[in-house]
Design a binder for these strands. Structure first.
Lengths: 225, 225
DNA sequence: CGCCCTATTGAGACTTGTCAAGTCGGGTGG
DNA sequence: CCACCCGACTTGACAAGTCTCAATAGGGCG
């Protein structure tokens, strides 16, 4: 929906830093590993760290007391978490697969931004990308039909693969996760998959492995603008 | 949906600055006025300034080549525009009423952030509030029914009024603007108004003036979590 | 007073949600 | 190794919500 291409996979807090600056950053880093289903942190808890995903897939969600749930993002290696929040995390992050995560305590990280202008700029741009992603999602939920929303997700997942593997998509999340991301029910998601398959836009090898047969149509439906 | 209250009306880039620091910021400021319907800037144009709304109401929207439109926000005095973007504006901003706007060129503004830590912190927090608002909208569009989405908007507008006038709401935007903000059609918005009126949750004096009769119900429906 | 634009209301179609039944597949225990 | 079991996914029938199209009402401004 926006003309922005997928530059965000390439942008990290390390972009353009000198060897010494990277070393200064790395001095703050500790590592965390999560098993499938484990939580990185919960909604409404104080946010004291910034995270960078190294391996695996994470899911960011917001749940309500009445049981409604909205998945805000699926995160893949290179993504950042917690860069843009204020004092509390406003969402829960959990692991869809075993995951390896770099953790940086937020206070020294902020101090370091004052010493390294490029780092501050990187953070600014990552924050901009996160907002841009969220605005894309608002557009999708507000304006698109079920099968278009599904293509919106497929395109996002496809764009983050290496160019050779763009067409083959591994869906590590459940249908319920997809439904809650796209603001639909699992049944509607299932029917949207069926519709795309019938129309030969995608092929479905198993519930969690699909191939994009017609990239152009997927993108047209995903953008739908 | 989040526990965050409406603190964002109070937070500006000036918060907690000394007299000298405010003067340094004000040295960058120029003023703009817009008539109803005029544009501040357009989607896909390079972003060279940061803006603060002083008077009036602005609307931020994203439009597609196929004519679909999503309104991302209605902005009221105290709100900031352009703080979180990268090189291009990813949306269009226009005036719903005559408006008065402070403009700060982005480059010196960023330089000043290096000199004034509190300013940098303010910008960080405003960015966090903008993202939080957008996440609220994702939740609303993904999970709520028409009349709940309308209460979501009414609550947002109500929260930004002075405490005495909280119950009386002036809708400066059209039904089409509301529909495009909530991901609905004008007819559905109209029926949602009718439903809330029939149920004595609100009273409708004219198409653009409504009174909240039962604040609790409006909030329950707005949060719906 | 009348015109025009916006909003409301109504009827019917379409999309999505709900409820229920059935299928598939991976994992476990015999 | 096979059969069963259980959770996840799919499919179907129907209900509910929203959209579309059309007609009507209302309000502001000349």
């Amino acid at each position: 929906m926006s003309p922005r291409q997928n530059t965000q996979a390439l942008l990290t807090i390390y972009s353009g830093l000198s060897r010494e600056e990277i070393a200064a950053l790395d001095a703050l880093v500790s590592y965390k590993t999560l098993e499938t289903g484990e939580y990185l942190f919960h909604q409404h808890t104080p946010g004291r760290s910034v995270y960078m995903l190294e391996e695996g897939t994470l899911m960011m969600e917001r749940s309500s007391s009445t049981g409604r749930r909205q998945v805000m993002a699926f995160m893949q290696p290179g993504n950042f978490i917690g860069i843009t929040h204020n004092e509390h995390y406003e969402f829960t992050v959990s692991a869809l697969t075993p995951a390896k995560i770099r953790e940086l305590p937020i206070k020294p990280f902020i101090v370091l931004q004052d010493e390294i202008p490029q780092l501050k700029e990187n953070v600014r741009r990552i924050g901009g990308n996160i907002l841009a992603h969220t605005l894309d999602q608002v557009f999708a939920l507000g304006q698109k039909k079920a099968h278009e929303r599904l293509c919106f997700l497929l395109k996002q997942l496809s764009d983050r693969q290496s160019p050779q593997r763009r067409h083959l998509i591994e869906l590590v999340m459940t249908r319920q996760d997809i439904a809650d991301y796209l603001g639909l029910t699992i049944e509607t998601v299932s029917r949207a998959f069926g519709k795309l398959k019938r129309e030969k836009v995608i092929d479905i090898y198993s519930a969690h492995t699909v191939e994009i047969l017609d990239k152009t149509i997927v993108e047209d439906l995903a953008l739908a603008d």
